[in-house]
């Protein structure tokens, strides 16, 4: 008796096809990918390796990168970028987790409504929110100093945006405010997947709330937190609107990060150095993106 082989699925056939049937399905996507991703990135890298001279565009190797790294303010921009990324990532993670866990508490009525309200900072266009925060922070005329002085927390106005030490954390707070809802949303989804029977078993075994959270909830969220962290880090590295609207990287470069420098160079018609800085930023983001992809692949 002849045995019939099971019919293979579409994707399985596509993955093992040797007769070229895949071409009509894959080639259009490949073409679009090359057009929208590979070509612009290639063009960017090429621009970073060239310069405009008397004879037109000339290949200069890594000269633009050397100039970039030798800039007097390179160290400050690099330092600011690291501090900015750490502050905004940790801040958004902590605030997002706290909000997500708090919304799970039984004392919170209408958690769905609160969740929607807390999502607003993420939804509001960053230009609008940054402009509002800018006036909120104003030294002499801002609402923040007015409130803090009214309740007696400070005696004199704080120069939130015109103090060398305070400006970067102050602007980072706006980025945290803008991105923590994303963390909250993802962690909330992660919390829904925590196995209630495991928690109940832990409770029967005498585990307290803190032990439940530390030994069961946090390990269950590890995968979500890893991916959320990577996304937040990439957002932080590429962040532009909030800083530009509030301080333009000032005062005296104290809140300038790489993405701000990229824009400034481009605005100053220094396209080649701007491209070099963009490639540096791209490589930094790629490290996190590759880690993200690797994690996703392991999960699937």
């Amino acid at each position: 008796m002849k045995r019939s082989t099971p019919r293979r699925g579409f994707l399985a056939r596509l993955r093992t096809d040797k007769d070229g049937e895949w071409a009509p399905f894959v080639l259009p996507a490949l073409f679009v990918s090359v057009l929208l991703t590979v070509y612009p990135v290639g063009s960017l890298v090429w621009t970073s390796l060239t310069n405009i001279g008397p004879d037109g565009v000339q290949f200069v190797g890594f000269a633009n990168y050397v100039e970039l790294f030798q800039m007097p303010r390179f160290a400050r921009i690099l330092g600011n970028t690291i501090v900015w990324t750490l502050l905004t990532t940790l801040g958004a993670l902590i605030l997002g987790c706290v909000a997500a866990v708090a919304l799970e508490h039984r004392a919170v009525v209408l958690p769905g409504v609160w969740r929607a309200i807390l999502l607003l900072p993420w939804i509001v266009p960053q230009v609008a929110s940054a402009t509002t925060w800018k006036w909120f922070y104003s030294s002499e005329f801002g609402m923040l100093n007015h409130m803090l002085m009214t309740v007696g927390i400070i005696d004199a106005p704080v120069a939130w945006l015109s103090s060398a030490l305070v400006v970067l954390p102050a602007v980072a707070l706006v980025q945290i405010w803008s991105t923590f809802p994303f963390v909250m949303l993802m962690v909330s989804a992660g919390l829904q997947s925590v196995d209630e029977s495991v928690l109940e078993a832990a409770r029967l075994s005498g585990a307290g709330p803190w032990q439940e959270f530390r030994d069961i909830v946090v390990p269950s969220l590890r995968g979500v937190l890893f991916i959320v962290s990577l996304v937040i880090v990439v957002w932080a590295l590429n962040s532009f609107t909030i800083i530009w609207v509030i301080t333009q990287g000032g005062p005296a470069g104290r809140s300038s990060i790489f993405s701000i420098y990229v824009y400034e160079s481009f605005r100053n018609f220094d396209l080649h150095r701007s491209a070099a800085a963009s490639v540096v930023l791209l490589v930094a983001s790629l490290i996190f993106a590759i880690a993200y992809m690797a994690r996703l692949r392991r999960q699937s």
Partner: peptide
């Protein structure tokens, strides 16, 4: 040529004066 960078340098130093540094 390079006016943008010249402005940036002057601007940063102007702000440094105002920051007291």
């Amino acid at each position: 040529e390079g006016w943008g960078e010249m402005q940036r340098i002057l601007f940063d130093h102007m702000q440094s004066i105002l920051l007291g540094s």
